[in-house]
Design a protein around this nucleic acid. Structure first.
Lengths: 219, 219
DNA sequence: ACCTGAACACCGTTCAAGT
DNA sequence: ACCTGAACACCGTTCAAGT
């Protein structure tokens, strides 16, 4: 009886594609990737499962859109002027933080990246820096690849371990020693920093003209 | 009527856990990970789906066993004497090859690794080398982490792209330029080598005492 | 333009019961 | 010790039809 064509109070409004992606991100953070089904998402939106397919082509594409949202902060506000290796460290840290900001963020991004459904998050920024500095774009891509794959893989592992021993550890597997989990400062941030330092050291060395030459397509 | 307790000719014998893992590897290579279901695997073995659960605790553990098999060649025959950075490159190349040896190998290993259900494939070897050379074990682990996550992530991407444009490319996504796919020598092996060189250069630099110090737990 | 209802072709896992 | 049969509680996706 009442005019419900504007979204006052509650439900009953029509949804946009962005609303669906918002809801997916929200549900991801609440229940985790294994429980993020199209049917639960539909429930969460107060809609039939089939309705989702008007907004989104399939689940993979939805997860790609979710990935793009997770990766948003990585390429925000430039104001660079840095060298390639310094920019690389910065982008790596931002990527790490962005992945950790959502439950199972690294896993979602890992598969979208592998499927080629999102842009590699480091490349645009590093290419821009390379251009400024007269460094070859191929070198920026190489550094971007090393950074991206390492950070995503490491964070994936890290995030699984966190939710594993948050839920109680229990049985099976190689097992992680049950130590300080308490304060968000779990010991493996050291491992992350150390390995990242190693890769950055590689970038610095190569920039200084040492050891390795950039791609140089044979033939 | 005939004694069927020895495996003559065909089916009808009882299966061991190893047989199940064998069959899973075989089926993985035939149909790929998305189509490797417990039910199809049961079919492949001539058995009811429920029978699998006598041999294996669940699907994740089965895939962990599959991962361990895929990773077998990585830690085979030592005969080292090499420096840490040289051993690291060797182990990276072996890992890459092993992952490529099975369809969706990198994806399977990626998740088993993240879940902590398989040993990181580079660590044992690199620790042994570090011990021989009087290098700290923590440095071996750092190099192992950088190598493993990079190689697995890169190969995952590479393998998805291969099967994507093997099947016809079609629609959607960021897209890979349709060029030489022909001879197994797809252009991105260059990208792999370049980024691996970068990481190894980092290891060499750190070994020479440059730029970065190994972990050193703060406090 | 956006959504419902109903169906299709599947999943992983459990568990009593058989041999 | 190893497996069957049957069930439970789900999946992603399609498609005609409604408004």
């Amino acid at each position: 009886m009442i005019a419900d064509d504007s979204n006052r109070g509650g439900r009953a409004t029509r949804r946009s594609r962005d609303d669906v992606v918002d809801a997916a991100l929200d549900l991801l953070d609440r229940v985790g990737l294994p429980d993020l089904s199209m049917r639960r998402l539909a429930d969460h939106l107060g809609v039939q499962p089939s309705a989702l397919y008007w907004h989104v082509e399939n689940k993979q594409q939805l997860l790609a859109a979710v990935s793009a949202r997770i990766l948003g902060p990585v390429s925000a506000d430039h104001a660079d002027g840095a060298t390639l290796d310094v920019a690389a460290r910065d982008v790596a840290v931002r990527l790490h933080d962005s992945l950790l900001a959502y439950r199972d963020g690294a896993e979602v991004v890992s598969s979208s990246l592998a499927l080629g459904l999102v842009e590699p998050p480091a490349h645009a920024r590093l290419r821009a820096v390379a251009l400024e500095r007269g460094e070859p774009a191929a070198l920026a891509d190489t550094i971007g690849d090393a950074i991206t794959h390492f950070v995503v893989g490491f964070t994936f592992h890290q995030q699984q371990r966190r939710s594993a021993d948050a839920w109680g550890a229990a049985s099976g597997g190689v097992a992680a020693s049950p130590e300080r989990i308490a304060d968000g400062d779990d010991g493996d941030d050291d491992g992350f920093t150390a390995a990242l330092d190693l890769i950055i050291a590689g970038a610095t060395t190569v920039l200084a003209g040492g050891a390795t030459q950039h791609p140089a397509p044979r033939r």
